[in-house]
Each structure stands twice: as structure tokens, then as C-alpha cells.
Design a protein around this nucleic acid. Sequence first.
DNA 1: TTGAAAGCGCTAACAA
DNA 2: TTGTTAGCGCTTTCAA
Lengths: 335, 335
Amino acid sequence: MTKKLNIDEVAKLAGVSTATVSRVLNDYTFVKESTRNRVLQVIKETQYRVNAVARNLRRRKTLSIGMIISNVLSSFYSVLAKAVEDVAIRNNYSTILCNGGDSAEKERKYLKVLHENRVDGIILSPTGKNADYLNFLISSGIPVAFIDRITQGVECDCVLVNNREATRRAIEFVIDRGYKKIGCIAGPMDRMTGAERLKGYMEALSGRGIIFDERLVKYGDFSYESGRKLMGEIIETVQIDVVFVANYDMATGAFQTIKESGCEIPGDIGFLMFDDSVWTTLVTPTVTAISQPVYIMGTTAADLLFKRIFNGSNYVEQKPVKVVLETELIVRESI
Amino acid sequence: MTKKLNIDEVAKLAGVSTATVSRVLNDYTFVKESTRNRVLQVIKETQYRVNAVARNLRRRKTLSIGMIISNVLSSFYSVLAKAVEDVAIRNNYSTILCNGGDSAEKERKYLKVLHENRVDGIILSPTGKNADYLNFLISSGIPVAFIDRITQGVECDCVLVNNREATRRAIEFVIDRGYKKIGCIAGPMDRMTGAERLKGYMEALSGRGIIFDERLVKYGDFSYESGRKLMGEIIETVQIDVVFVANYDMATGAFQTIKESGCEIPGDIGFLMFDDSVWTTLVTPTVTAISQPVYIMGTTAADLLFKRIFNGSNYVEQKPVKVVLETELIVRESI
DNA sequence: TTGAAAGCGCTAACAA
DNA sequence: TTGTTAGCGCTTTCAA
């Protein structure tokens, strides 16, 4: 707060021009060794730090990317966030993390904030809305990458998993183990992952000649609370052999409810979930789960994004890349 | 990528000066209704978005804060991150999240990046090092708040829990239940929480007349892997009644190891952990845990930070606030 | 109620 | 190898 410390001040103290200081700051090669040292000395003494805001304005680059996810509290998204940040750091970029909570308005608001801050790229798990804004961003030169889900009508890089296929195969496995009445706690149908996983469930049934019974399916919002509540409803109202829960948070709630109800897994009810995380090997019995390569999803999407960022304004012409990663059914004791 | 769209362009299209556009942008009152509408119309048609980088440079404010935590993957820190971001959003601020991984060099690097980006404040779970840089930041007008831990020699707002006291009382409870040989998987001693919790453990022993046996204590790094490994060592080398694990991630690893070893909890070995999160009520038996008000810690620290941010440069004179929150021992089946 | 213009701190042509 | 200088896009006096 003493005197305002900027590049001019440093230049004055070192007895050179601001351009020279700038050159030192940016490791420009053509600076005489002695001059460079003098400047570095002043920088050290004054603890001068370049003002990145001014630099960003001038360079028209911010060395930052934005990331919008539903909620860092969800294990899946926190891994994604970590993966993306790891890649960003490797590229000397900062990450602005936004928890959009799956609200289309929030997503739009965050897109606006990120746009205003002129982030060099945006990576998000989209709500499926705001196609207009996303397209506008892309066409105005800000690369966008989708992760886990997509928004219809927006052409950009994306990284997904084979939700439908993975679910179908897992349910087929369950059926082949002899289970007949297969309950399902599905995600919301307006979310790609929710819809795809349910389709996989239905495909497996019809493929094995089992009539789809809609009373066995409950629709949640992917949250712990909804898993908890819907599992309770299922236990109270219908008779099932096994339950498939469409994501980690809901499965956590559902497992809790089953445990409290006194039902035995897998004796009274088998348990299969999408996502494999922390507690699946800790509980009794251990849980059979469809495992996604979450961290890889994050790094893959980030790599795609940075490829475009570093391609500069040519990037618009390049075809979007779609990566679909494989999941793995990890069979444990609950089925 | 068509034509460069800035405030001048908008002004031209609306037939006014840039100053007027700026006034509209910032809800300045003295603009004639018709003029305002004309400008808003142009903004809408062109999809103009203010360049926050330029605005920040001019205003010498960025409406962003930085947050440095060990690792978003850790349940504790992800809750903290969410809490801080929630408060930031409420104040119309963005959060730049950095995973410092408890490395002093990384912390320093991130502090530098955040400083260069002229964030309006920084909130961190400090490594305990870099006191010089932190003090420099504070004295140059960037408010800092600590959360969960502090750095010696730095005077700033902080939010902690009563680590030592909480542990002491919990261990006393364990002793009073009749346990005698109390193992401990402690955190690293150069981290405040690690050291304080171990002190609490030792205080409880001496208070109850139990001789401290250092063979029963293993020192980990708060990670899943170290919990897993150290629990293995304990099981193989010493005889204990009960184990206290000093944080969530290590407890996850330790619990896994016990489960795999075939030992019964609490029959063969009682289990007590610091932190209460996802799986403690899911496993069999449910786990007795010291619960921290994590979300509240985050919002409290963020509130303190924003109070200083909004106080402008006067903030340096105000005495640092230290908040110590209470934890709660939640008794379940594992003890 | 509006406009002209200075300047936030930096980078990068261009010139020397 | 170094300096001069024109902006980057915005806000904010000051004047009209």
C-alpha cells in the first residue's frame, strides 16, 4: 500500500525501459545478462509481481479455463474437477470452478461470467439447455468441451461413457444370475445419463424376454436424498429381487435405507449400482458396480480442450471429437 | 470472430458515447430512459458481453477470490470448497480453486498466481510454511483467511475446530468404556491438525493414568493409502483393543484393511475416527466418529474474508478474528 | 443527461 | 540489445 508498484516503477528503479522489464519478465532472449540481473534484482527487492489482469487484457488471453459441474460434493464430479485441474496446471492454466447444480439458469449465468472473464476455454457437464449461448461462445472463439453429457444441437468435443450398453450388459448379467423382479432407481429423464441408463435397463429386459413393469421403476434426481426416499417407497410398495441404482449418490441413499430396513443383501434383495467409489468395498456385503474411468474422462476432455485452445482461432474449423470410454462391471458380493 | 465487439462498437451502433454505454452497463441512474433502451437493444442484438478483464484492470478489483486446499478429492476439502464457493456466489464473486496437495512449494506457487491475478482475497488451508509471502500479501492489501489450520507467524482471520479437546474427550470416552490398549494412526506432526489430535490422544491417556506406548502410534500422511498400510502394520506387530484414526481418508483405508483381515469390529478391535462422512453409517458396524461442522467452517471463513474485502484498505488495521468451532462425538456401534 | 479524454498496467511493433 | 509508443477495453472524472 506504500507506493504503487508496477512495471514502470520497476523500470525506473532498474534504470531501464518498461519494455526491457517486460522482456525479462517473459524470458525474452535478447537481453544483456547484466541488464537482466539488474532487473531481477529490483524485482526481488521490491517483491514485484506482474499484474496478470493488465497482461491478459493486452495479450487477449487469460491462461484460465472455466469448469461447470453439478456439484463438487458429488464424488463423481470432484474427481472430474481434480482431473481437469491437473491438466490445466500442467499447461500453466488456472481453473475457475463453478457448481451449477444442474440448473439451466445457473449454467447460463456461469457461462456469462466465464465469458465476461474471457476464459480461454470452458469445460462442462451440461444441463442440456442453453444451446444458443454455447453455440454463440463457440462461434466467438471460446472452445467448449462437454464431459459426461452433451447438449443437443451443440457441436463440440465431448467425452462420454457407454451408459446404455454398460447398463444393458450389467442387467443381463443380473438376469442370468437368476434374478427376475428387477427394481430400478433411475435418474431424471431430462438428463442424458439418466435416460440412457434407463434405456439400457429396458433393453436388457426385453432382450431376455422379461416384461417391463413400470411399477418397479422410480425416478430420482441423482441425489442421496432421492435414493434414500425412493428405495423406501420400493420396499414398501413392491416386491423385488434386486435393485439397480443409476448413480453413486442415489445408491448411497438407497443402500442406507436397505440397511436400516433390515433387509439382507443379497439374500432378500440384490444390489447393483452405476459408479464405483469409496464405500463399495467397505460395506457388507461388498457391492457390485459399474465402474466409470472418471479421472480419465476428466483428463481426456481437458486435453481436447487445450488442443483447441492452443490451436488458436483455427480451431473452429476442426471437426468436433467425440470420445466414448468403456466402463467395467465389477462383480462383488451384492449380486 | 467477425468484427471485434467492444464498448466502442456498441456505442457507435447505439449512437452514444462509450461513457453512456458504461453507465447503462453499470446501472448508473442518470441515463434517459429512451437512451438506456436503445443501448440495451444494441447489447441484446449484438450479444455484447462486457470484458471483465478490462473492467478489472480499470477498477482495480477482480470480483474473484482464490482458494487453496489440499485436494478436492478429500471429502473434507470438497465440502469446504463448496461452502466457500456458495458464499462467494452470494457475493457475486468467482472462486479460483487450487489443489495444493499440502506441498509448501505448490502453495507458494499458487499464492503467486493468485496474487498476479489480483484476486480480492485468499482463503486457504495452509501448509504452515510461506509465512513471509502470506504476510507480504496481507500487508499489500490482499485479505487472507485460514481454515482448518494456521501458519505460525501470520496474523489473519482463521476458523478452526477444537482438535485437541475433541480428541481428548473421545479417547476418554473410549477408555471409560473399558478399552485399554489404544492404537492410534496419527497424521503428520508438521501439520497442526495432526499434531493437535495426537496431543489430545496423549492427554487422555495421561489423564486416565495410562502409560503412553509409542509402539501403538503410527504416523501417516492423512491419505487413504497410509491408513491402509499403517493399519496393516499395527495388526501384524502389536496387540490393541481399539484404534483411533486421525482423519477420514486414513480411516477409510484403515477400515478397509481391518475388514479384509477378518478382524471383528468391535469384538476384536474397536474403531474411532476423526471426521464423520459418507460411509460411517453405511458399514457394519456403524462407526463412532468425531464430527466436524465442515460446511459451517467454510462459510464462516468465507464470511470473514468477505467482510475484510468489503472493508477496503481499512481492513489491515482490524484485529484478526479467530473462530474455534465445536465438534461432536457421535457414538455408534464400533466402540 | 451526455460526451471527451485520461489512464488502469502491460505487451509488442517499430525504430534506433 | 534497448527504448518509444500505441493500444488492449473499460471506468470515471470533468466539463458541457
